[in-house]
Amino acid sequence: MIRRGLALFLLWSVGAPALAFAAPERVVSMNLCTDQLALLIAGEGQLISVSHLAREQRSSVLAEQAARVPVNHGRAEEVFLMRPDLVIAGTFTTRATVEMLRRLGMRVEEFAPANSFDDIRVNIRRMGALLGREARAENLVANFNDGLADVEAAAGGADPLAALYYTNSYTSGVGTLADEIVTASGLQNLSERYELQGTVKLPLELLVMGAPDLVIGREAFSQAPALARENYQHPALRAFGAIAEMQSKYWICGAPFTLQAATNLLALRERHLANETLGQ
């Protein structure tokens, strides 16, 4: 009897997640952006692991919350041993790992990175649906829409020209979330003027010729030296004053906290406009 009961129990425990449409109970996230969406949306105890990146202060907004959840390093073996009933990965998560988990019979859902405010809404709602937390997701979307409306209301009037200039001379052009953030904050994106598509290199010459009012960079990920930030030291940049170094964690992932990136830009813009009036 005991053996039969055990067999039934095993059958139930294996079959249940696949059969039932009930919300998953053991969710593992393997990507910094899905980590943070899941941390915001999941119910108590539903999320059993997030990626180790979610604890990095410089890249994760929710590092504190992530500290209370066990971490994974995106390896198939460790994720499998956590016996999740849902694995959430980014479309850029190692292909080999995702394929391996699928072969092992895991349910893996992939999220594409958000390239627009619309993508953010879509991703929040999809995460809500996957976790059975639709109400929470709707709530977040409504707050996000309100916050965005506030940003856009505050961003009226003059729109100074801003150059996004990251480490290794990269910039964000048309079709990127960063471009939408810049535009929503009442700034013009220089890369848009050059019709640059996606995240590409912005040649220093073009930046200088564009004569932007503001050069917006990213803070350093590490104090250890590397050539990656040498572009910030170039003498040709001195004419544009100090580079405004934004906190990367608000820019990496599209999420409700993306509004913080826009709010920071708004403050930068205010300062610039105030200085300009002062100068005149």
Binding site: T167, N168, S169, F221, S222, A226, L227, A228, E230, N231
Partner: peptide, 25 residues
């Protein structure tokens, strides 16, 4: 071994060379 995540990408620069954005300094 550098703790800076960008350092490993710079292997290419040291092996193949570039004059991109070199300054008077």
């Amino acid at each position: 071994l550098s703790p800076n995540p960008f350092a490993a990408l710079e292997i290419v620069f040291w092996m193949l060379g570039s004059l991109q954005d070199r300054a008077m300094t």
